[in-house]
Write a protein that binds this DNA or RNA. Structure first.
Lengths: 229, 229
DNA sequence: TCAAAAGTGTTGCCGATACACCCATGG
DNA sequence: CCATGGGTGTATCGGCAACACTTTTGA
């Protein structure tokens, strides 16, 4: 049996919401990094790197995210640890990856920070990625779409205050289907996470929409005993 | 800043169902290993060990499980990767643990295989464990109790065929509450996972109960794109 | 014939959906 | 005053919990 080693790395699936290039409707985007060495040279891969010895797992994911995109994660959660024997640069070196997923607000900077080695793609229209990264993104998408249904992570895509139409737009973009405005409103209001403000969004050719904020005393996602870690 | 290294280990939270020592009702048990060296010397800890270089993560968990308990896992799923800086034997060496959780059938052997260093405990009445293992078990329990509600993992605690009362007993033990037999029956039947056999369990002072089997074409748990990995 | 568990039927409640309808604003 | 989305009201449907009731066995 050949000698083999195991390396430990942290990668991150980073989601942002921006209009789709052709349909102009909101869609999920993911930044990828082009591999500059074999194996899979030239292919796109998830941003990531080795875990620094004096750094926590989530901290490593957050640092990597900032270095790749210049953005601050609004939400960060561990996705899965991948450690199959088929992973890694050579057959003799296998890599165990702790993968996180994150939600960011694209804001202004974004485009500038992405160099030639970093490029954003529509998450549902990715090319074939390096290693098992295609499967990883697929799994991250599945988790995100699941979680939208029962938590308030979508707050991470919005500013401090927002209208119900804006919030519904985020949900529709993530779930890729339209939602009934009346029922969506009741669902959100009955969740207890929303707090109505006295401010309104004006400017449309219609009745102004009330602005809401999220109750900050409730966590974005309930991960049981791990909540807040 | 001090020099520091990172070790990689795999641990497993192993659940079995056996009667509670005082109430005699079914309860969840967990095997623990006594630590024979500092830090936390003498404390109980999750079974685990370093990842072999030529071994997958789940394979490592399965091997460790067999070595500690002599049992074969009926169900095995990754729980979480823990990598805080406070973990590990010394301040200079931090350990990243990929933790799995497993369901086993105690069967006959069980008690014999457990040596002086391995002891089974009622999962809800554990002593203070080494490192962050108390939190890890708590999280595993939370995941198990969640998953019982929407998947068929409880199959892992039963034999090939079983009565609805036996299945309900497992659910009641895990969830720690009684369930209405009539509604439980309908729930299970409408799930589509159950297949009725023509055999019956006789011997009680009552009407014989039909034996069921699980539809093997359906996976125990739906983990989206990762199902079956 | 009786106790006990298997198994079936029925009812009422609650949440989600569909959709009709009024409100307030900009043009 | 009209088009547009904001916001409310309401009927219906389906799933679930509660619980009454019938069935079949062992003793």
């Amino acid at each position: 049996m050949a000698e083999s080693r195991t390396a430990l790395a942290v990668s991150t699936v980073i989601f942002a919401l921006r209009p789709h290039p052709t349909t102009r409707r909101l869609a999920l985007w993911v930044p990828l990094v082009r591999r500059i060495r074999a194996p899979h040279q030239g292919r796109w891969a998830l941003p990531g790197g080795p875990l620094a010895p004096d750094e926590g797992l989530a901290a490593s994911a957050g640092r990597n995210l900032r270095e790749t995109t210049g953005l601050t994660p609004q939400y960060l959660e561990q996705l899965y640890a991948f450690g199959g024997l088929d992973r890694g640069p050579t057959a003799a070196e296998r890599t165990v990856s702790i993968v996180y997923w994150a939600l960011v607000r694209p804001e202004e900077a974004e485009a500038g920070a992405a160099g030639v080695n970093v490029q954003w793609f529509v998450a549902d229209e990715l090319p074939e990625l390096a290693f098992d990264h295609s499967l990883i993104v697929e799994y991250a998408l599945w988790r995100l779409r699941n979680k939208v249904e029962y938590s308030r992570i979508t707050a991470a895509f919005l500013g401090e205050t927002f209208t119900l139409a804006e919030l519904r737009g985020v949900h529709e973009a993530v779930l890729q289907r339209t939602l009934d405005p009346a029922n969506f409103r009741r669902q959100m209001e009955s969740s207890g996470h929303l707090v109505a403000t006295e401010a309104f969004r004006t400017g449309g050719r219609h009745r102004p929409a009330r602005l809401f904020r999220y109750d900050t005393s409730v966590h974005l996602a309930d991960n049981g005993p791990l909540t807040g870690r």
